[in-house]
Structure formats: structure tokens, C-alpha cells
């Protein structure tokens, strides 16, 4: 067991970053910024996994690799979708993207 693990501070930082990401998704209106906030959430979780993996073995570290791969796949698809919507509205502001209502 490592002597100085920084577990508490790491988890706290991870929680703060995650909360920032959530707040960004809820408050911001730009699709690209929203997407970046989601990425921030995922990377906050990665930090938590790394911190916890010191105690629980390599499972957490393996999970981080999977999360990064998935985030990359999501980025590819997500940016393509944002591009597709930009072609319709000439904007990525969610206030201008409100055809579906009711």
C-alpha cells in the first residue's frame, strides 16, 4: 500500500471537476461547449478511477483506458452530428435549435 496516496484530495478534485462539468451542461447553450463539459465529466471520473485503483488493483486503470477510447469514439460521432446541425441552422447555439417542441 503506498504511503501517501492523496486519495482524499484526488476524489475531492474529481468531484469538483465533475460538478463543473454538470453545471456547464446545465447552464451553457453552445453545443460545442456542452460537449466539452461532458468530456470534463468523463475525465473527472477517470481521475477518480486512477485514485481508487491504488487500493483496488489494476481494474480501475484498465477502465480509464476504455473510457478514453469511448470518449474518442463519442467525440467523432458528436462532432459529426454538430456539423450536420450547423448545416441546417448555421449555428450551434441550442437556443436556435428548437424545431422539436410540444
Amino acid at each position: 500500500m503506498p504511503e501517501n496516496t492523496f486519495l482524499g484530495p484526488s476524489l475531492a478534485l474529481s468531484a469538483i471537476l465533475f460538478s463543473l462539468g454538470v453545471a456547464g451542461v446545465l447552464l451553457r447553450r453552445n453545443a460545442i461547449v456542452l460537449f466539452m463539459c461532458v468530456e470534463l465529466m468523463l475525465n473527472a471520473v477517470n481521475l477518480a478511477f486512477i485514485a481508487l485503483a491504488q487500493f483496488h488493483g489494476a481494474g480501475g486503470q484498465i477502465m480509464v483506458l476504455f473510457v478514453m477510447t469511448v470518449a474518442a469514439a463519442e467525440a467523432a460521432v458528436g462532432l459529426a452530428i454538430i456539423l450536420a446541425i450547423f448545416r441546417h441552422t448555421q449555428s450551434v447555439d441550442l437556443q436556435n435549435i428548437n424545431l422539436l417542441r410540444g
Partner: peptide, 25 residues
Amino acid sequence: FSAEAALKYFLIGAFASGFLLYGIA
């Protein structure tokens, strides 16, 4: 409409995945 549906689904879906992943951690 289809493009907008994809954007909304993607943003909410990725947001939800973040929560799920934090729960897993």
C-alpha cells in the same frame, strides 16, 4: 428534425453516461 433529434440524443446520452460512469467509479 432528424439532425436536431440526433444532437439532443447525443448531448443527453453523453451527459447520462457521465453520471453512470461516476456511479461505476
